[in-house]
């Protein structure tokens, strides 16, 4: 289920603009990796290259290699759609499909791809995914109700359930808690701790406490100035980043001297 990611010398471009320069890192399976850094430093862009979602933006492309258990995501003939079904993603703002019920939202990955699924299988998948996202007890009596009727935190957990339901190898989270209150954030963080036993989780966050709470390893990204590309400054176990950072920039950032 869970796979490792190896990134080798990755550059990401938006047209002529170089957004992220020369990033290399190895992400272990069954671990949580947090990306921190100031706004605009390319951490979200880099996250999106891990499932080729950046290609949705016209003119965006990446150079270098991203290996998922040794298979290059950017190799010749690789279909981005296949990549995305192996590497799921949860976004900053909860985005359940407004036309679908809670149940259909969970089944979206299956149904939108027109895969056949029997009623009992679907029921099982819905229950296991919602249980996996810690949402089952709250919504089990109203699976037919619209997903947009849930609270923000519940919607975000619904989105996680939706991502789990397609059984990916890796789950990417782009600031999943930035639109949520502390209680919902706690629920999501607990959830991250639980799902890391089955998945490789990569999370972008602006909240350094969150990074130190949930992650095993932390990557610090920075940017020298506007118009300059973002770079990976330091990548180390989380406790090292926050307690004994090797680079001056990292220390300044995590100690709150800037950013």
């Amino acid at each position: 289920m869970s796979k490792r990611i190896d990134v080798e010398h990755l550059n990401v471009h938006y047209g002529d603009f170089l957004a992220v320069q020369d990033v290399s890192m190895n992400i272990e399976p069954r671990s949580v990796t947090a990306f921190i850094g100031p706004s605009g430093c390319g951490k979200s862009t880099f996250l999106r290259t891990l499932n080729r979602m950046h290609e949705v933006i016209p003119g965006a492309y990446a150079e270098g290699r991203v290996l998922l258990d040794g298979d290059d995501l950017y190799g010749k003939g690789v279909d981005p759609v296949t990549v995305r079904s192996m590497v799921g993603m949860v976004f900053q703002r909860p985005n359940p499909f407004p036309t679908m019920s809670i149940r259909d939202n969970v089944l979206a990955g299956v149904k939108l791809n027109n895969k056949r699924i029997s009623g009992s299988e679907a029921d099982e998948l819905v229950e296991s995914s919602l249980r996996g996202a810690n949402l089952w007890n709250e919504v089990k009596d109203r699976l037919g109700r619209p997903g947009s009727g849930l609270s923000g935190g519940q919607q975000q957990r619904l989105c996680i359930a939706r991502a789990i339901a397609v059984k990916p190898d890796v789950i990417l989270m782009d600031e999943p808690c930035s639109a949520l209150d502390p209680i919902s954030t706690l629920a999501i963080e607990d959830l991250i701790n639980e799902i890391k036993t089955d998945y490789t989780v990569v999370i972008v966050t602006h909240n350094m406490q969150q990074a130190s709470r949930v992650s095993d390893k932390t990557a610090f990204f920075n940017i020298e100035g506007t118009g300059k590309p973002g770079r990976l400054i330091e990548y180390a176990p989380t406790s090292d980043i926050f307690n004994t950072p090797q680079k001056k920039e990292t220390e300044d950032y995590v100690s709150g001297r800037f950013g």
Partner: peptide
């Protein structure tokens, strides 16, 4: 909203 398209792409939908 573009978010809905992205949510769908992220599920591996064409």
């Amino acid at each position: 909203p573009n978010e809905l398209r992205e949510a769908s792409y992220a599920l591996g939908v064409r």
